[in-house]
């Protein structure tokens, strides 16, 4: 078990007029190798939850255990926790700060105690993993790169200290369609080669449907669903949550009202095209 969360409750501004319960009795765990999508409206508690997993918010009530680090114990080893959990914040390109890409990516490993040559080696490896050319980019200022490149460098800065879990807070926000696709493909390939466990926050249900094997839905600080994308989008009534359905699912449901029934495991454009092909080649209604 990578992450175990039990009865987690958190209140902002407790005993003030601004008191707000951000997390309410949240319990779930994440296993190694899972790709979990975390969804919910703005203000549903997603960021508060993520910050707990990385020890950025002090645990007040409940339990958070990341690998063997128990955050409910006195003085948990936060340094080690943060090495386990690599966190990519929203718009990470604004957090690049060093003069060169090399220095920026080496910052993490050096702070976790690596020697310089070792850190450089790690940085080189991480930058290469994100699909950038190390020799070409290492001495350039991060500020002169394109938006997509900056975001890759930001991810490299995390990969350089080899975390075991990646937490991505809206990794595709603000990118153009090609940039979005590249970023998602990068994350998918990292899962195979480098970091198998990924938690992604996204408002884009098409992305969640395509790239996550499990979804957790927060609403008003409560965990209301912990299920697969297929079950969430086909079985549960998510309309009250103002969640948009993935387009492919929406089309399947509309077709069903008109009498064209397709399997309830279709989540992506390609899967929909395949199912339609099969349906019509078999002779439509007679299938």
């Amino acid at each position: 078990m990578s992450i175990e969360i039990k009865d987690l409750t958190f209140v902002y501004g407790a005993r003030t007029p601004y008191e707000k319960k951000a997390l309410d009795n949240v319990t779930f765990s994440v296993n190694e190798g899972e790709s979990v999508g975390l969804i919910g409206m703005t203000g549903s508690g997603k960021s508060t939850l993520l910050q707990h997993i990385n020890g950025l918010i002090k645990l007040k009530s409940g339990q958070v255990k990341v690998f063997d680090i128990d955050l409910s114990k006195r003085k948990p080893d936060l340094m080690r926790l943060r090495k386990h959990v690599g966190m990519l914040f929203q718009y990470p390109e604004y957090q690049l700060f060093a003069d060169t890409v090399k220095a920026d990516v080496m910052f993490g490993p050096i702070n976790f105690g690596m020697k310089k040559p070792e850190a450089e080696e790690a940085a080189k490896k991480a930058v290469t993993l994100t699909g950038l050319d190390w020799e070409e980019i290492k001495d350039r200022s991060p500020l002169e790169l394109s938006g997509g490149q900056k975001r890759r460098v930001a991810i490299a800065g995390i990969l350089a200290y080899s975390p075991d879990v990646l937490i991505l807070d809206e990794p595709t926000a603000g990118l153009d369609p090609a940039g979005k696709k590249e970023m998602l493909d990068l994350i998918a390939s990292l899962r195979k080669t480098t970091v198998s466990t990924v938690i992604t926050v996204s408002h884009n249900m098409d992305e969640i449907a395509e790239y996550c094997d499990r979804v957790i839905v927060l609403d008003g600080g409560k965990l209301i669903y912990d299920t697969t994308p297929e079950k969430l989008f086909y079985k549960e009534d998510v309309s009250a949550l103002r969640l948009h359905l993935p387009h492919a699912v929406r089309i399947v449901k509309l077709l069903e009202q008109k009498g064209i029934v397709l399997p309830h495991d279709i989540l992506t454009e390609d899967a929909l095209v395949n199912a339609l092909k099969e349906y019509f080649l078999k002779g439509g209604d007679h299938a």
Binding site: D176, P177, A178, K180, K181, D206, P246, H247, A248, I251, E269, D270, L272, V273, L276, K277, F280
Partner: peptide
């Protein structure tokens, strides 16, 4: 131009390429 059309357009493109 590296655009990414809405899913419904993409489905139509692919079905059309398959001869529908």
């Amino acid at each position: 131009c590296r655009l990414h059309p809405p899913v419904c357009c993409g489905v139509m493109h692919k079905l059309s390429a398959l001869g529908f």
